[in-house]
């Protein structure tokens, strides 16, 4: 697709940073405020969509590559399933950080959460914020790949001749058909 005008490019340059920061804020605070892994990852992927629309596919093809996003997505997935294996001392997906046995790891989301209305403490939650980060990484990688693959231009093959052959024996109004397929 063709790049857009200078105003759009300038606003994209200004806004991209804010969108990325907001997306990561939604990912990291998933255990306190509405949001979490998938929602924050989708917000970050919308920044990728904005870049592709504003800059056009030629310049984006030089800078953003599928392989980088594919590696980001794969690492997010492996981190998610791997974090489940860490709790195998008790069960799979056991919240091994929220139990106050491992006092040396209390800095890593180990504090006790308060029940009832409270101003949220980000240090709580155990392994859940780490799972949020893994899911957020994975979703931003996956949605960016889907966007990059769908928004780039392509040329459709000429398949119309075969369709007309196969439907010629059935339809009475062939001219109406030709107009329809030409219009599609």
């Amino acid at each position: 697709m063709t790049p857009m005008s200078k105003i759009v490019v300038l606003v994209t340059n200004l806004l991209c940073g804010f969108i990325l920061v907001f997306g990561f804020y939604v990912i990291v605070h998933g255990h306190l405020t509405p949001g979490g892994g998938f929602q924050g990852g989708a917000v970050v992927a919308s920044a990728c969509a904005l870049v592709v629309i504003a800059y056009g596919d030629k310049r984006v093809k030089e800078r953003l590559s599928y392989d980088a996003f594919s590696a980001i997505e794969a690492s997010g997935l492996i981190a998610f399933v791997g974090l489940g294996f860490f709790g195998l001392g008790a069960t799979f997906f056991y919240n091994f950080l929220a139990v106050e046995r491992i006092s040396s790891l209390r800095w890593l989301f180990g504090a006790k959460a308060l029940i009832g209305p409270n101003p949220g403490d980000i240090n709580t939650g155990g392994v859940i914020p780490l799972l949020n980060l893994a899911v957020g990484t994975e979703v931003l990688g996956a949605l960016s790949i889907v966007l990059l693959l769908m928004l780039m231009t392509y040329t459709p093959k000429r398949g119309e001749a075969e369709i007309e052959e196969s439907t010629a024996g059935r339809r009475a109004q062939e001219t109406g058909e030709k107009h329809e397929t030409g219009g599609n």
Partner: peptide, 25 residues
């Protein structure tokens, strides 16, 4: 013994982990 205890979770988790490792591998 621990394999027998955790086998339901391992049966599901090991193919899942392998499915995600294969592209990198």
């Amino acid at each position: 013994e621990s394999l027998r205890l955790h086998s339901p979770a391992l049966i599901i988790a090991i193919p899942l982990l392998t499915a995600f490792i294969i592209p990198l591998l």
